[in-house]
């Protein structure tokens, strides 16, 4: 069995005295694809920020095996991205190599990273001129360029059309398998990605559960669909 790369033990966190996360524990092994899903406002994005150390837990411990491991992060696109931003795909991707200054090395790595996300030839295109799906690929390339061992993504499929959605999910699945990168992804659209994930961290009300994707599919996803179906049936 692979060793634990992330171990979260009894972590709690609150804003202004209100608990957002309470006593959360889970662990991820190297190579896991772990989806983080559940109700709105349950603290999924907060959990990513705790893993990134931009927030500190009020109690509990987070241990990440840092021996040679790097973490990359793809934030929620809608929150930060301005499509009129005057930068090329290459300039955005190169940011992931900060603080590297060697221009020749940066150019080579940018080309390779954009190839990994099937955007070869788009280096000099303005980010605003790319489709929503292509823009998201650039953000993933920016995260991949530093050869991370752990990739954190916050709602990477938000605002993307149905066709691009499938492509992005397959791309993330390939990245996880081909490069053995541990992926932790916050998503509301679990149906699109569940086939690529092996674990699900489910935020359900006041309880956070770590399930295998099969357990999630059988116990929560299908139960939820049945509940929806019953509710719609009653209404009709």
């Amino acid at each position: 069995m692979e060793r634990e790369i992330i171990k979260v033990t009894n972590v709690s966190f609150g804003y202004d005295g209100n608990d957002v996360l309470k006593d959360v524990s889970f662990c991820a092994q190297r190579g896991d694809f772990l989806c983080i899903t559940g109700i709105n406002g349950a603290g999924k994005t907060t959990l990513l920020k705790l893993l990134l150390k931009t927030l500190k837990p009020s109690s509990g411990t987070i241990s990440i095996d840092y021996t040679g491991n790097k973490i990359s992060y793809v934030p929620q696109k809608a929150a930060s991205f301005n499509p009129a931003f005057p930068a090329t795909a290459a300039e955005i991707t190169a940011l992931g190599l900060y603080p590297e200054k060697n221009k020749a090395k940066i150019a080579g790595e940018v080309k390779a990273a954009l190839k990994k996300v099937n955007l070869q030839g788009c280096e000099n295109k303005l980010i605003g001129k790319l489709s929503g799906g292509q823009q998201q690929r650039v953000f993933i390339a920016k995260a991949l360029i530093s050869s991370p061992d752990i990739l954190l993504l916050d709602e990477p499929t938000t605002g993307i059309d149905r066709d691009s959605l499938g492509d992005i999910c397959c791309l993330l699945g390939d990245i996880n398998k081909n490069y053995n990168i541990t992926v932790l992804m916050v998503t509301h659209d679990i149906a699109s990605i569940i086939n690529h994930a092996n674990k699900v961290l489910y935020f359900g009300g006041d309880k956070v559960s770590l399930l295998s994707s099969a357990q999630y599919r059988n116990n929560i996803f299908h139960a939820g669909m049945a509940a929806d179906f019953t509710a719609h049936g009653d209404g009709g």
């Binding site: 990134l52 931009t54 992060y73 934030p75 930060s80 991205f81 931003f85 930068a87 300039e91 955005i92 940011l95 992931g96 900060y98 603080p99 200054k101």
Partner: peptide, 19 residues
């Protein structure tokens, strides 16, 4: 220039990357 571009693009990611 790199720091300023990174912060203009996304300050949160820039901070995570060590800016």
């Amino acid at each position: 220039l790199n720091e300023l571009l990174y912060m203009a693009f996304d300050e949160e990611s820039a901070a995570v990357s060590g800016v």
